[in-house]
Amino acid sequence: MGGELEIKGLYKSFMVNSQKLSVLEGIDLTVGDGEFVVIVGRSGCGKSTLLKIIAGLEMPESGTLRLAGKPISGPGFDRGMIFQEHRLMPWLTIERNVALGLGRVKKKDRARIARKYLSMVQLEGFENAYPSQLSGGMSQRAAIARALATEPDTLLLDEPFGALDALTKIEMQDELLRIRANQKSMMLMVTHDVDEAVFLADRIVVMSSRPGRVRAIVNIELPEVRDRGSADFAWYKKKIFDYFFEHGSEESTDFTI
């Protein structure tokens, strides 16, 4: 098992039309081992950038990131990432896609491991199909299997169900909880779907935009199996929504004349 993720004073900016635009400012966040944290924010609040920095795909300008005590300096097999698009290689069969990260594993074990995770996401029988033959939901399942196959301690999910229809999305959320019960890995998800956040998270991090800052952290004290129709569930949803829509909030500065 891995350790906790510790982010301190993270800063990141982009150059837009030769002007410096800060994307993330003073992000402090600690995620415990095995914890499920969901980051919600408007599009453009830098939440995906934050996830990419944790993945090691982008470098912060200042601040420290430690995972299990070790500083993050690039991608690593201790982290797996699931993107909004499935990002399967169109030219590889599903099995070979899932085995993509298994370069360090003995050749003869690769297919077996790939099959194990394919059956975990209920894709048995599709080993030799190409991604174009799968539906959106099935492709995303395959992408989850690929991320799990390397057995990362930390799973980073960048709006993984954002492109799916509402019903498939709910199905996938249930699936993710089932996988989590099995894997016990730390999960860090980014979304703008408040319902999804309350359904999945142990803690929700609310981010404000331009620059992206941590606005609030909300502990979700709901039972493991959550009822989307319950009053408590609705209460949490309203609480999160309020951060975005209450009057006089810093978000409303976007609309000043």
């Binding site: 982290r79 990432m81 993107f83 698009e85 993509l100 390397t150």
Partner: peptide, 14 residues
Amino acid sequence: TDNGLLEVGRMYQL
């Protein structure tokens, strides 16, 4: 080549 796919490759340190 799709940059998204290249990122996947980088994630797996190809």
